[in-house]
Computed example of a mutant assay.
Amino acid sequence: MRPFFTAALILILSTLGLRADPVERSYIGYGRLIVNDSLGDFRDRWRTGSVAASHVWGPDWTGALPGRPFDILEFRVLAEVIYPLSYNAPRAGDRPYAAAWSFGMHTHFQRGGWDLATGADLVITGPQTGLPDFARALHEVLSLPKPSRAVLAGQVPNGFHAAAVVEAGRDLPLGGATLRPFVELRAGVETLARIGFDLTLGPAGQGELLVRDPVTGHRYRTITGDATGVSFVAGADIARVTDSLYLPASTNTLTDSRHRLRAGLHWQGEKWQAFYGLTWLGPEFVGQQSGQLVGAVRIKFTF
């Protein structure tokens, strides 16, 4: 099922940009988000750590998305490490160790009052990524437990995988706040359908291009404005996952649904900007004893 849905979604995305007239682009934005459970509940397991980064090219930013796809292009990179609960020996029913790099091209535009984000990614998995070695060295420096050879031997193997995503969201004024319902479809490494919302109260992030982190659901800033102040953000979503490379059907059974609850603060000063957020991730497979709390952070200084 995974190859069929991935190929179909990538084909749909490719047809969105068929046009002859070129657009002049320049480098207009950059964003990143660091996620780790040491910033949340301080327990090292499951969705333990990731780093997302986005580089954006397009015409001069006007505060709103263009009406055509591919005027704005976002090159997105994601590095992620997923741990089982036990570091010492594989446990029956637990998820396998997984490491992945993702490299993709995405575009952002408007249609019928909806903000659309679509794109395709190449996902590289397994020890060939170098992430298991990096994580092991980092744990050694910090005097933290390291996965045993038996755990690493059962990790998600080397591979190259196609993936695609479509998200549609709409900002709705709500008094002094903004409510943003959204829907998302993913195919490839994980095939899912998701529905949720984001709530923003405050000036930071308004009129900017924000990109959704795939692990936590937080939206991080890539094209930033001049408004200073603090914005409180919150959100929730629920997903139906039909297939996951990270949770093989031979060893794991997916939960009926996957839930995320999140809250955070964007702060914008004259030269500094920062974000800190928390996300509760519900169980992803049968036998996962509980959800987990992960933290997300970003700090930027403008010279």
Rank of each mutant, 00 (worst) to 15 (best):
I72K: 04
D60T: 14
I72Q: 02
L78G: 07
G58L: 03
S54G: 10
A52T: 15
G67D: 12
A79S: 13
A89M: 06
E80V: 07
A53E: 11
I72V: 14
G63F: 13
P59F: 09
G67N: 14
R68V: 11
G58Y: 01
V51M: 13
A79V: 09
Y83P: 00
P69W: 08
V51G: 03
A53S: 15
Y87L: 09
P59T: 09
W57E: 11
I82A: 00
L65R: 07
N88M: 02
V81F: 07
G58F: 04
F75G: 08
P66G: 13
G63N: 13
E80S: 03
P69H: 04
L78V: 12
L65F: 05
F75A: 11
P66E: 10
A53H: 05
N88T: 11
I72N: 04
F70I: 01
W61T: 06
I72H: 01
L78D: 01
T62C: 03
A53W: 01
P59G: 15
P84Y: 04
P59H: 09
S86V: 01
F70M: 06
D71K: 05
G67P: 09
V77H: 13
N88C: 04
G67S: 13
S54M: 03
T62H: 10
S86K: 00
S54L: 07
S54A: 11
L78A: 02
D60R: 15
L65V: 00
Y87P: 03
H55Q: 06
D60A: 15
G63V: 11
G63A: 12
F70Y: 09
G58K: 01
R68C: 06
R76A: 02
A53D: 10
P66M: 01
W61V: 12
A89N: 03
F70K: 04
A53L: 10
S54W: 01
A52C: 12
L65A: 11
G63Q: 07
I82D: 07
V77L: 15
W57L: 14
H55I: 05
Y87T: 08
I72T: 06
G67Q: 05
